[in-house]
């Protein structure tokens, strides 16, 4: 379906979105925004998958993208639940502050 000329641009966009999301994870301090950047990365992956599926005329990429959406939804639920708990016990919502994993 997808033509040979447009396919690289799809992939480029996907890569751009992905790395943008990675950049956001690295530089933002509010964990909610970090979360959203992770969602952005997942969407980028979905874009790449669907792009390939269309280019190669195979529906497996779409099946995988479907699974990714499911997992992303589950992950958002748990993650936001955690963040809610962090907030409710009075901690700052700042990833630099939440460094309990420090050795």
């Amino acid at each position: 379906m997808l033509s040979q000329s447009m396919f690289p641009w799809i992939l480029l966009t996907a890569a751009f979105l992905f790395t943008l999301g990675a950049l956001g994870v690295l530089i933002r301090r509010n964990p909610l925004v970090v979360f959203m950047c992770i969602e952005l990365m997942l969407n980028a992956v979905n874009l790449a998958l669907v792009g390939y599926s269309s280019y190669l005329n195979s529906e497996e990429g779409q099946v995988f993208a479907f699974m990714v959406i499911v997992v992303a939804a589950a992950e958002v639920v748990v993650g936001l639940g955690l963040l809610t708990r962090v907030f409710s016990i009075g901690r700052e919502l700042d990833v630099d502050d939440l460094d309990e994993m420090k050795q």
Binding site: I27, P31, V95, D96, Q103
Partner: peptide, 21 residues
Amino acid sequence: FRTIQTGLIRDYASYMVLFVV
């Protein structure tokens, strides 16, 4: 090696991104 474990998620993410790229 322990000094790598700063506890900051962003540092961990940086390592990941670096190596993925």
